[in-house]
Design a protein around this nucleic acid. Structure first.
Length: 551
RNA sequence: AGCGGGGUGGGGAAGUCAGGUCAUCCCGGCGGGCUCAUAACCCGCAAAUCAGUAGUUCAAAUCUACUCCCCGCUACCA
């Protein structure tokens, strides 16, 4: 395992609140991974930033009578608060509109330009005389020439799925007026130059997901298109050329560069040589499958274009999208659940548990279902794990006055239990290293289930000769669970720790500590109380109506 | 339209890349046990020709071909 790592997750676009879909695919998996790496002694930093630029933000801020800067600063703050409430622990959360990023983006552009990867081209684009704006693809709607469906985007018909050659009856999607066509000069990035290199990079990179790789390679085979990287709007990183007055970079040119500029700023401020650290660390970019193109093509191509001055990513864990009650999440149709709203009803760990347990390491979509949520929390998290911890600690309190008893010779069952503890760090660790967070969590649940069985079979309440061993091992198992669980459910893990009467914070420990019998005979436990309250069916029914969308 | 991913007991999923050790896990149903624990937990039973057809193989949920359904992505979006 590399002893250094930089973890990033897709940048939240600063024009709306964080919802369950965002955290499920990106922020939560990245947070769990970072915590895991840190416990393993890796110098890992999790950095992120709000994505501040672009036309949608400009339009929305105008609508709300704010400057774009005020508008994005509001969302930057709010997003960070929501993440923090969910125990997503960034080492640094910054913004793409930072002076550091602007300078960095302009510098990268200069280097790409000097290396001959940029060219100018005059294009004809729709222009709205009413709004006084050039209208990029999505801002023009009309009738699809292929299937005649109305109200389709000029760059994609959602009805037949084709990319229209020329849309019929174009209309400005802001004001509805027909736009005119105007000439404008844009800058293009020669993505075509990088097809072979990208293909090879994908081929040779063992850590990249196979399913995604295949997908992207097919795209390369069918031919890459040079990429229009500028826009005629006022809100963005200015193109640093005299001839480019009034032009800014397209959001996807600048935003992923903030991974680098943000990390460097954070590291330099800490007194670490940021560039050197970046280039010697494992780089992780956690993303959702919708931005595969940007992270598997644009981003590596740009880094290759500046001679890999900053190394390419080692891992791009890509996950599917969350559906809500089996339907696509959509803010505009109000079919989504805001993170903040959710956390008003249930603590972070419930959601963390549920989202990880349904989230495989693949591009497959996953589904949030209220009843499934209730069932999993009640029967798995509470019935299995919460119950075990509570019965083990409660029993020790009741029978041994909270003092862990002296042990005798282990019988076969005891030895088996001891083995489970000893192999836990490896069993769970291997899965986490492979990014299988869901399976790793399941392993911990299996461990807990084993100990419920063990406890049952040993029947310590009958006060037979095996009682002391059973209590000793059960209490130690609870300790192991706390450490293993910490990356997933930090709050609950720490709670178990305190109930065990242990001092300090789990994040000061080492991963392998979980496989030690760390609680000696004679240790005095803390106060045991149930860790989790049940999810009530009646509440779920109410929430379904409230948070869930009304059609 | 192109590309990608799926169809596994009543419901939801894992297992498929590296074929046998596999039919597993959770919910639900039925029957028992226990009483330390949040009506929890433990043991057992019923229920699946692993979408269909053909093939490869000593051996297929797993590999190949075709067919039928479902879903997602297509360069704004986690």
């Amino acid at each position: 395992m590399n002893k250094k790592a930089i973890i990033t997750s897709a940048l939240p676009y600063a024009n709306g609140e964080i919802h369950l879909g965002h955290v499920a695919s990106t922020y939560l998996p990245a947070d769990v991974t970072t915590r895991f790496l840190k416990l393993n002694g890796v110098e890992a930093y999790y950095v992120c930033a709000s994505d501040d630029y672009g036309t949608p933000i400009l339009l929305q801020s105008e609508k709300e009578g704010k400057t774009p800067a005020e508008y994005v600063s509001h969302w930057n703050k709010r997003d960070y608060e929501d993440f923090t409430a969910f125990n997503i622990e960034f080492d640094f959360f910054y913004k793409t509109s930072s002076p550091e990023n602007i300078a960095f983006v302009q510098d990268v552009f200069q280097k790409l330009n000097d290396a001959g990867h940029i060219y100018e081209k005059e294009i004809i684009q729709f222009y709205c005389n009413n709004d006084k704006k050039f209208l990029p693809d999505r801002y023009v709607k009309g009738t699809c020439p292929d299937c005649k469906a109305d109200d389709q985007y000029s760059d994609l018909c959602e009805s037949c799925g084709r990319v229209p050659e020329e849309i019929i009856n174009p209309k400005c999607s802001i004001c509805g007026q027909p736009p005119t066509k105007e000439k404008t000069k844009h800058y293009f990035f020669k993505l075509k130059n990088f097809g072979d290199l990208l293909f090879k990079w994908l081929d040779e990179h063992e850590h990249l997901q196979k399913d995604v790789k295949k997908y992207v390679q097919n795209w390369i085979k069918s031919g890459l298109i040079d990429w229009d990287i500028t826009r005629d709007i006022s809100w963005g990183v200015p193109v640093p050329l005299d001839a480019a007055e009034g032009k800014v970079f397209y959001g996807w040119f600048d935003n992923h560069l903030a991974y680098i500029s943000t990390a460097i700023k954070f590291l330099n401020d800490k007194g670490i040589d940021g560039k050197e650290f970046w280039n010697s660390a494992d780089i992780y970019h956690f993303i959702g499958k919708d931005i595969v193109y940007h992270h598997y093509l644009f981003l590596p191509a740009m880094r290759l274009g500046i001679n890999s001055e900053y190394k390419l990513p080692d891992y791009i864990p890509t996950r599917g999208h969350l559906t809500l009650q089996a339907k696509k999440i959509s803010k505009s149709r109000n079919w989504y659940i805001g993170l903040k709203d959710f956390l008003k009803n249930y603590r972070a760990d419930y959601l963390r548990y549920y989202l990880i347990s349904i989230n495989p390491y693949s591009q497959d979509d996953l589904n949030f279902d209220w009843n499934d949520f209730a069932t999993r929390i009640n029967s798995e998290l509470i019935g299995n794990l919460g119950n075990f911890v509570n019965r083990a600690l409660g029993f020790t309190k009741k029978t041994f006055d909270g003092i862990v008893p002296e042990i005798d010779t282990f019988d076969d069952k005891d030895t088996e239990a001891e083995q489970k503890i000893k192999s836990l760090a490896t069993d769970v660790g291997l899965l986490l290293e492979q990014n299988h967070l869901d399976r790793a969590l399941k392993k911990i649940m299996e461990f807990s289930s084993f100990f419920n069985q063990y406890f049952q079979h040993k029947e310590p309440w009958k006060k037979g000769p095996g009682t002391a061993n059973c209590v000793f091992l059960s209490v130690n198992a609870a300790r192991s669970m706390a450490i293993a669980l910490f990356s997933f459910l930090p709050e609950s893990a720490q709670q178990i720790w305190e109930q065990l009467g242990l001092s300090g914070k789990i994040d000061e420990l080492t991963w392998s500590n979980m496989s030690e019998l760390g609680i000696p005979s004679g240790h005095v436990l803390g106060t045991a109380s149930p860790l989790f309250a049940k999810v009530e069916e009646s509440d779920i029914e109410i929430l379904k109506k409230q948070l869930g969308p009304s059609e």
